[in-house]
Simulated assay, not measured.
Amino acid sequence: MNTGPRHDHYLLTPGPLTVPEETRRAMLRDRNPGGAEHIGMSREIQDYLLSLCNGTQSHACVLLQGSATYGVEAGFKTLIPEGGRLLVVVNGFYGVRLREIAEAARVDTTVLQLPTVPLPNRADIEAALDADPAITHVVMCQAETGTGVLNPVEMLAEVGRERGVKVMIDAVASFGAVSTDAAALDLEAIFVSPNKCLESTPGVAIVIAKKSSLLEAKGRCPSAVLDLNHQWTFMQETGNWRWTPPTHVVSALAISCRRHAEEGGSGPRLDRYRRNWQVLVNGLRQKGFTTLLPDDVAIPIIATFNDPTDPAYSFKSFHAAMLRRGIEIFPGRLTSEGTFRVGVMGDLQEQDMHHILAQMCEALEEIGVTLPADGGAKSVETV
């Protein structure tokens, strides 16, 4: 088996990530934002992303300048009317981020604070709705990459439909790998990022919103640049973005959508990530490491490992040793101090993971950590 590197540098983070060369090359050409090529690419992206979530008839895909966080705030400001109240489900770092965005956007917000595991369940959501009948919307992060948890979107959507509460999903880290049916789940909005499972570059915020709600929101948003209704209707009428678009990033995303389709869509992409994840997790477990989460709640796009208890270990020295080998990993997030995270998204194959695993072992030995390591298993903490 060839275990050599396929890339000069590996970015093994929750995103941005290791981008295919074809995607990078797409950004080398300057394109006219009002030209037919750029307009066609924008439409191609919208059509493809709607097809991925069965939203072609029921939903609209709104493209917005900025990171995915811009799209989340735009969604809150545009889709939640005056008098509405948002329930934010928080069981990790990105649930906290959703709460911070909502509060900064002056959205009337209430929080359901839960531990990382066990996963949120029907009783949790129903109790929160019973306690606050004024709640009109609820939002939850599907893939909490701060730890690696995959949250139960289908359950939340079912409760929302039964209670007449509109459901928004932060699928920033999961869209493109985890299949989500926007129409069947009757989702109010899905927030998406290009630089995660779509394997593109950051710079475009994507909001897949229910058409009827988007139309009802005309004139509601207090922000000129975050008004999803105006952005969408302007693009529908003219083909153009309302403000100067990130043309190079759009070019990259169009190529990424084509690559995604060529791979077979979300299912085959998640299968590849799962194979990558298994090589990494099984390999490090054989070296004595333990994972923060049990496998049955983990999404195979990122793995979180407990730090070894060897006194020679520090994340700073481990990170530096990995960087010298052309590989970048991340520390844990908030709920997972004493951990490190390794993403398996991006232009990665099993060959890459075997190379990365070998380099990790070399780096640990370089900083004086004895293998097999003691992963120091610990319970998952609450936020």
Rank of each mutant, 00 (worst) to 15 (best):
G160W: 11
R258I: 03
V204R: 00
T69A: 02
A128G: 05
G338K: 03
G326K: 04
P245L: 06
T180M: 01
T3H: 15
N229A: 00
V281K: 01
V249A: 03
D8T: 12
L114C: 07
V153I: 08
N276Y: 06
Q236N: 14
S51R: 12
N2C: 00
W232Q: 13
L214I: 13
L129Y: 00
R285D: 10
A183T: 15
V149Y: 07
P115Y: 06
G343H: 05
G75T: 12
P81W: 01
T116M: 02
P222I: 02
R275M: 04
A254Q: 03
T244L: 13
R6Y: 08
K287R: 11
V225F: 10
A358E: 15
H355P: 03
R6I: 11
C257N: 05
V178Q: 15
I80C: 14
M1V: 15
S379E: 07
R272N: 04
G176N: 09
W232T: 04
D374E: 05
D307T: 14
V225H: 14
I356K: 09
Y273P: 07
G160C: 01
E100L: 10
R324W: 00
V380A: 13
L156P: 04
D271R: 12
W243A: 09
A157I: 00
G15N: 01
Y313A: 08
A303Y: 07
D374A: 09
T109C: 04
Q359S: 15
V342Q: 02
T56M: 01
W277P: 06
K210V: 01
G15Q: 05
I208S: 07
A189W: 03
P294E: 02
K166N: 08
G267H: 08
P202M: 11
A254W: 08
Q57W: 01
G239A: 14
E263H: 09
K77W: 09
L79E: 13
A298D: 04
T116E: 10
D347F: 10
V165T: 05
H230V: 14
